[in-house]
Design a protein around this nucleic acid. Structure first.
Length: 155
DNA sequence: GCCAACGTTGGC
DNA sequence: GCCAACGTTGGC
């Protein structure tokens, strides 16, 4: 069991949106960064824990807990010429980009980025490293526990 | 809207 | 395979 942090722009898909979705599940599409894609393709497993992070918004931070809910599959939006995520170099025979399903599990009291930076156990967190822009990043078990503890959630 | 820090592209 | 130019991310 591994842990991850996934960034979403709440204007696009917020944690509340996923909680309200059928089966509390959403397809995580539109990842167009190879490192993030490779995490989904090679490392993320059904049941892995996910910190659902809101980025590019007034108050960025962790909004809730989720889990990986599917194996990887081709991201449909790469084939759609009308999509902002269209990739003319991708073909159905050789897809470039993949999606996974993510299921929201627990709402937690929102933890702003500024607050995350004050938690000593999170000092080395990939998200908090200078220049880090990855939309999907690994989270250690210790970091996961520290976030849950901070949020007052029983593991 | 600014801009630092990255990532990608494409000419050579 | 280098690297300059360009594009994107994302906090502020």
């Amino acid at each position: 069991m591994a842990y991850w942090l996934m960034k979403s722009e709440p204007d696009e898909v917020s944690f509340a949106d996923v909680l309200a979705a059928p089966k509390q599940t959403t397809a995580w599409f539109g990842v167009r960064n190879y490192q993030a894609r490779n995490f989904m393709r090679d490392a993320m497993r059904v049941g892995d824990g996910v910190l659902f992070y809101h980025s590019s918004c007034a108050v960025p931070g962790i909004a809730g807990l989720a889990e990986v809910a599917s194996a990887p599959y081709p991201d449909e939006s790469q084939f759609d010429p009308k999509s902002a995520y269209h990739d003319p170099k991708a073909t159905r025979a050789q897809p470039r980009w993949i999606s996974i399903d993510v299921r929201a599990t627990h709402a937690i009291p929102f933890i702003p980025l500024t607050e995350l930076r004050t938690i000593p156990a999170l000092e080395e967190m990939v998200l908090l490293r200078k220049g880090s822009r990855l939309s999907i990043s690994p989270v250690t078990a210790a970091e996961w526990r520290a976030v849950l503890k901070h949020a007052g959630v029983k593991p």
